[in-house]
């Protein structure tokens, strides 16, 4: 009997060793490098830090929106309500004001022309460029990606995006940076087409928090994680209730099972 379990263990150990060995296979220079950060939204009970969300939105609006669209979001999402609660904690009037501060293309009017009008909460976020070609033309052929889902679309998620934003450094000696590219510690291959978007004090925060690069990066990544997962807080809240209910129900079912089976065992 011992030999059989030993045999099983040996086979598992061999398989595990092979798997481990293969994971370590080095393609390290092509992989992004970044470290893990602390995020308020991590974990089963994670929530969004509301002030950070609002600061992050300010960073997006003042810095990133010049090149990056956020086309899957509508202005009304900032105020929450509807299918997803929470938003980033802005009131209906604040949301209306933000929407009204941008011009939105609408039409055609009765003359057949498209026209500009102030935005409404029901409008989608305005894109900086009308189409991909215009975006590339303004950015040396590179396309600034839409940011609605960027935190989910990259392995490493929030940590990776934070790493990119804080990873702009002077290139080390001997490293040649190509024309129109910038050295970035995190980006795979270390050359990225985006110029460093953040610098200390680039944004003046409404809540007077000091706007260092790590602070702005942290806030905008929090905002972008919300943008990709606006339902996160609902999901966590309902999830905790569902699991607790299921644990109780499963416990009851186990008791019933034992009771019903008591005459067979």
């Amino acid at each position: 009997m011992m030999r059989k379990t030993m045999f099983k263990k040996a086979v598992f150990a061999v398989a595990a060793a092979i798997s481990l060995g293969l994971t370590v296979s080095a393609r390290a220079q092509d992989e992004p490098h970044f470290s893990k950060q602390d995020w308020s939204f991590y974990g089963v009970f994670g929530t969004f830090d509301r002030p950070s969300l609002q600061r992050g939105f300010q960073v997006y609006k003042d810095v990133c929106s010049a090149c990056h669209s956020l086309r899957l979001l509508s202005y009304r999402d900032l105020g929450g309500g509807g299918a997803i609660d929470g938003g980033i904690g802005l009131s209906t009037d604040e949301v209306k004001a933000i929407a009204a501060s941008v011009q939105v293309t609408d039409g055609p009017n009765d003359q057949g022309d498209m026209f500009q009008r102030p935005g409404r909460p029901s409008d989608r976020f305005v894109s900086p460029f009308p189409n991909e070609q215009a975006a590339r033309a303004s950015n040396n052929g590179a396309l600034p990606p839409d940011l609605s889902l960027i935190v989910e679309a990259r392995p490493g998620g929030p940590d990776y995006v934070y790493g990119i934003l804080t990873g702009f450094k002077d290139a080390p000696a001997g490293f040649t940076v190509n024309q129109g590219m910038y050295y970035n510690e995190t980006f795979a291959g270390h050359q990225i087409a985006m110029p460093p978007p953040l610098s200390d004090g680039a944004v003046t925060y409404a809540d007077k928090t000091q706007a260092t690069v790590p602070q702005m990066a942290h806030d905008v990544v929090t905002f972008l994680t919300w943008a990709a997962n606006p339902e996160l807080e609902s999901r966590h809240r309902i999830g905790v209730k569902v699991i607790i209910f299921l644990v109780i129900l499963t416990g009851l079912l186990y008791a019933v099972k034992r009771k019903v089976w008591s005459d067979v065992h």
Binding site: F245, I248, L249, L253, A255, V256, K259
Partner: peptide, 18 residues
């Protein structure tokens, strides 16, 4: 035993409705 069945059945029905 009946209470256990009743409680479990009720919990299950509530769960299904939710």
């Amino acid at each position: 035993r009946d209470f256990l069945y009743l409680a479990t059945g009720a919990a299950g029905a509530i769960g299904a409705a939710i």
